[in-house]
Design a protein around this nucleic acid. Sequence first.
DNA 1: TCCCTTTGTTCCAAATAATGAAACTTAATT
DNA 2: AATTAAGTTTCATTATTTGGAACAAAGGGA
Lengths: 265, 265
Amino acid sequence: MAQANAGDGTVGKALDALDQVASMGRPVRFAELLEESAYPKATLYRFLQTLTNQGMLSYDARSQTYSLGVRLVRLAHAAWRQSSLAPIARPYVEELAREVQATVHLAQLDGGQVLYVDKQNPSNPINMYSESGKVGPGYCTGVGKAMLAFVDEATLERALTQQTYHRHTENTLCSPQELMEELREIRKTGISFDREEHEMSIICLAVPILSSQDRVLGAISVTNSTHRTSLDELKKFAPILKTCAKNIADTAESWRFPEHDKLAK
Amino acid sequence: MAQANAGDGTVGKALDALDQVASMGRPVRFAELLEESAYPKATLYRFLQTLTNQGMLSYDARSQTYSLGVRLVRLAHAAWRQSSLAPIARPYVEELAREVQATVHLAQLDGGQVLYVDKQNPSNPINMYSESGKVGPGYCTGVGKAMLAFVDEATLERALTQQTYHRHTENTLCSPQELMEELREIRKTGISFDREEHEMSIICLAVPILSSQDRVLGAISVTNSTHRTSLDELKKFAPILKTCAKNIADTAESWRFPEHDKLAK
DNA sequence: TCCCTTTGTTCCAAATAATGAAACTTAATT
DNA sequence: AATTAAGTTTCATTATTTGGAACAAAGGGA
């Protein structure tokens, strides 16, 4: 867990400390943090105090441990509502999950990576933040490829360089060249597969959510395991997914961008 | 949205700016933020740059707007899992909602405000203000008063000054004096009422969730409308609520602060 | 077109806050 | 009582932040 931020003054360093606490995944004592920290004792100590004052961390005096604070939960709610499709798409995603009887993901693109903003599991309905918020790679997931296939040249180029290609399975597309070829195919058909490229025995079918100007808003996917279904079976859901994506796009546009379509170029 | 933080150096001020973006509820331009900000142009500008660099905000060059960033979503996800009571309390809250056949809220204190971290709605939902992740006032909600009644002196004092008292209904307690009196009563009985203090026709019964050291972990409440029930009816649920709160506290403590004797050399 | 206004960005000397080694205080252990 | 480890405070030095003002860029009329 390296301290990656030399760049951004005090704020950056304090956020480093915050990340460090987050990465532990449990309440931690000062000494534990100090061991791994790049900062001296007194400095780290003050960061933790400040973050605690600010509600970004909370400190339990009894066990002398720091954990993430409630202010973050509040910010999460705001983030989820204002910069994600999730609240708008929720009813469509729910309906889709019922129809296909499998896990449905709603994702958005952020800097080459896939951010899952909602997930519906027909057997285990309603979980608010429990799964949304996770981040995955763009180059080897169904939703990632679906979105990358339709973004503009500049965004794509930037995204491609931001990937850290890693051969998760034998099917993973590990180079920009392979990926570009795949993306061309996806652009033609409008659907994207994950052929066990990220995780063995996990396959998925994804489609992009496109605005009326073909701007990429996000993607939805239906995921299953090879033990329960096959790619050919999944492919049958393509029309339902496309309809769902269209519905989400329409709703999103009328709701979030009431007036702002002056693309015109 | 006042800039309440003079206290915490650069980090606190930068987090102010972050909150400000969050509070707008939509992508915002620099000028909009500047208008409401306590900080001078150049200063605010640098905060936004830093936060964007750090991934806490994201900047859309096309519309020149800032919104909340992915890093925040990621942190928040971790926060919800490891630091909110929601995942731990979920089964108890569900059971309670079934037993009382009404809406159950789980809340935590954030500054002087109430943060709803979970909500269970049994069969027939009634319309009201609150959703998990949402924030409400501390001085005029059942859960808010239940928690404030049991926090330590210092926290209470800070919380009281952070309220922006507003007479939502004719029953609202609008001054620290009235509130303090009510809190004393709550401390005696261990239960707190919302007598249509926040919203007309909405009443609720709440109890605090206290650790074994009497630290306030959160609060749970059962809410209903005056058309369906009365305060006297609600009062009958007090024992069930107290048991539920106790269960949540016990589980939280054993889950989050496991005894660590195994660390002998 | 030009001029004017609004909005966003950069500069830099002064003011302020951060830094971190070391001293100090607990709390626990021997 | 002595030893050790963990957490907290101090303070002179150093580095960052600050913010007024200048600058640039993007509209927007007439």
